[in-house]
Nucleic acid binder design. Structure first.
Length: 649
DNA sequence: GCTGTAGACTCAGAAAGGTAGTA
DNA sequence: CTACTACCTTTCTGAGTCTACAG
């Protein structure tokens, strides 16, 4: 049921502390900060550190070369990291094992190091069993105990999980410091298995306001530094030891800060929509530029625009998995086909992109693009860059000149969102059932996920669950046949009897058939949806690439159900009207469409909030197609505002 | 200008967690 | 009613993008 609003998770987490008295129609405009300033006031409790290591009891033994041995506390802790992962594929990977063993030996005592020289002789089985049993014990404990534990966690979250930023109580995304463990890189990462050290307060930089209550470090400890930098958004940071990367504690996406940025992102994408034709004309012309750099840039832009490739920064060789994006494509990643299956100028891509997800695609390209590629790849080794005169820096600099705020990734956002809109227009049948409309939405969403190459490994039980739903469909069909024949005999009986009672039976059977047939289509649609979604991940595009306004326009703008719609906020229902205003209809300057959207939001958000762009951003971001609220996510937030939750599927 | 690097922020899929439907 | 399990959401943290700044 896509036409109900229910999920205002954002409200649950971002609560204005300084409620302003505002009259009807008065806009809430918070002052704009000067360039680069992100906040005026920031107060928080500091991060929550990982619980200390609890040594194993003597009955859980590590064996070396068949002999049980008690490890020193440090060595034992690191051993448990490996032991816990025993049924994971990582522990069979040679690089993982080698890195782990090297780092493990470093924390051993010299005696241990002398003895333990071969990982193959190490037996972590008891450790593994111990933790498996522990998990199981946790799983089976009583409802009451689980509830208590949850309450405890909630209390901690209330203390550490929120901060105050400029008068708003904001939820923190990751208030917990990452616990020590073994580094799990994606793909074939040269550092996988290395030890991620335990972070101490002495490693952590705190960022807050000078006039706030400065977080107190755990007793006996000190912070690395306390700074008061309001040009950045993070609350705390540290440097991670495996890659030397910085880690940050930042706000939840529901926060004003993140929501506003998110909103801005879609506004930039919409601005691109306004000038994308010019930009396309420009790079198409540049395909024939006399300057090599411009030609390469033009081809790269063509790919970024047409295929939604990522920019492709250079990476330090040997430090990370070997993955590429557009600018870092190598000759070995591209095959040129003068003719393929009757088509001319086909480019075959095969490379590993972000997270080592494979990108494989055969694409029909412009003749000039093909010619250029041939030229770029001439006399080069497979490991040479295709675009040797190009990098993301000068590409983005060029884009910046074409449109303010334009970078390579904006094309991804733009093309994702415009694809959703076009697909929705094409696929939605206004006469279809809700299940069919939901399928249309998911198909449109899927087109975007395919464009952005968002993949997932098929769920373990996929085939099984597919069989199950097929069985259900068969059962339903049988049931329909049965009911139909019952209807037939009821009709015959009625012909003879011609009384009220027999007529009633006919009606009843008729209704039953109808109902069953509805259930059948719903199941069939569900099965189709699931099958098509086997290896495609919709979440990332839904969350990060699709302008929620398009979904709102689709779901309430008459495509799904025209006329009056009911908005559900918490327990109370209010009614609102909203006219269609897709990306096409609304522009960056405030149109009537936007105003109506705001009005509708205003209705929904009848908690004394003004509907600022930010709020729209917050709420829309959360607005996916999902059914009515169920009890499970309905809660009361700290300020006593009842918030409905979204659940189900 | 160009290059290299640190820093800060968005976006990514896997894994964990939790609930509702089902046996 | 309870245990199981399928399925969806949230959490986690790694992997990108992009900018600022130094030499």
């Amino acid at each position: 049921n896509t036409t109900h609003l229910w999920c205002l998770r954002a409200l649950k987490y971002s609560v204005p502390i300084l409620q302003r008295a505002r009259g009807a129609g008065e806009r809430w405009e918070e002052e704009h900060y000067e360039d680069g300033v992100k906040w005026r006031f920031l107060e928080h409790k500091g991060p929550l550190f990982a619980p200390e290591y609890e040594p194993l009891t003597d009955n859980v033994r590590f064996h070396y070369n068949g002999q049980p041995m008690k490890l020193s506390a440090n060595a034992e802790e690191v051993a448990t990291f490996f032991g816990k992962m025993l049924d994971h594929e990582y522990t069979t990977n040679a690089i993982f094992r080698a890195n782990f063993f090297t780092d493990w030996r470093e924390v051993m005592t010299s005696a241990e190091r002398k003895l333990i020289t071969n990982l193959n002789k190490c037996d972590f089985q008891e450790i593994h069993t111990y933790f498996t049993e522990k998990t199981e014990a946790k799983r089976v404990q009583s409802k009451e105990v689980k509830q208590d534990l949850k309450m405890e966690q909630e209390a901690i979250a209330q203390e550490y999980g929120y901060c105050t930023m400029d008068g708003h109580r904001e939820r923190i995304a990751n208030y917990k410091i990452e616990p020590p463990g073994l580094f799990r890189g994606r793909g074939s990462h040269p550092k996988m298995g290395k030890l991620k050290n335990r972070i101490q307060p002495e490693d952590v930089i705190i960022n807050c306001s000078r006039d706030s209550k400065i977080p107190v470090p755990p007793t006996g400890h000190n912070w690395k530094e306390v700074r008061f930098d309001n040009k950045v958004t993070w609350l705390a940071s540290w440097t991670e030891n495996v890659q030397g990367a910085m880690k940050y504690i930042m706000l939840n996406p529901s926060s004003k800060l993140k929501g506003e940025k998110d909103w801005q992102k879609f506004e930039i994408a919409r601005r691109l929509k306004g000038c994308v034709d010019d930009i396309r004309a420009k790079y198409s012309a540049d395909l024939k530029s006399r300057e090599m750099k411009s030609r390469q840039r033009a081809v790269a832009l063509y790919f970024i625009d047409k295929l939604a490739l990522r920019a492709g920064n250079e990476k330090e060789e040997g430090e990370t998995a070997d993955t590429v994006g557009c600018c870092s494509l190598r000759v070995e990643h591209i095959k040129l086909h003068n003719k393929l299956n009757g088509q001319a100028c086909v480019v075959e891509f095969d490379f590993l992109g972000k997270d080592s997800i494979r990108y494989y695609n055969k694409v029909l390209v412009k003749k000039q693009v093909f010619k250029n590629l041939k030229h770029f790849m001439q006399n080069k080794d497979p490991s040479d860059d295709v675009f040797d005169r190009l990098n993301t820096h000068n590409l983005n600099k060029h884009l910046q000149e074409l449109m303010e705020g334009l970078t390579a990734k904006v094309f991804r956002t733009y093309n994702a969102s415009i694809t959703l809109q076009h697909q929705l227009e094409q696929l939605t049948d206004s006469e279809g059932s809700e299940a069919e409309k939901l399928l249309s939405y998911n198909r449109a969403n899927r087109a975007v996920a395919v464009l952005c190459n968002h993949q997932r490994t098929a769920p373990k039980s996929f085939d099984q669950s597919m069989k199950k739903i097929q069985a259900k469909i068969e059962a339903k069909k049988e049931q329909i046949d049965l009911t139909k024949s019952e209807l037939k005999s009821a009709k015959m009986y009625h012909k003879v009897k011609k009384d009220k009672k027999s007529k009633l039976v006919v009606e009843k059977k008729k209704k039953m058939v109808q109902k069953l047939e509805e259930q059948l289509t719903k199941l069939e649609v569900q099965a189709t949806d699931r099958e098509e979604n086997k290896q495609i991940a919709l979440g990332t595009s839904k969350l990060n690439y699709l302008d929620p306004r398009i979904t709102v326009a689709w779901s309430v703008g008459g495509w799904v159900r025209s006329g009056e719609i009911k908005w559900r906020v918490g327990g109370s229902e209010s009614k609102g009207m909203l006219e269609s205003s897709s990306w096409e209809a609304s522009t960056s300057t405030d149109t009537m469409g936007r105003q109506r959207e705001r009005d509708a939001l205003s209705e929904m958000l009848s908690f004394g909030w003004d509907v600022t762009p930010r709020l729209c951003g917050l709420f829309w971001r959360q607005f996916h197609c999902r059914p009515l609220p169920t009890k499970k996510y309905t809660g009361v937030d700290p300020e006593g505002v009842v918030v409905g939750g979204g659940g189900g599927g």
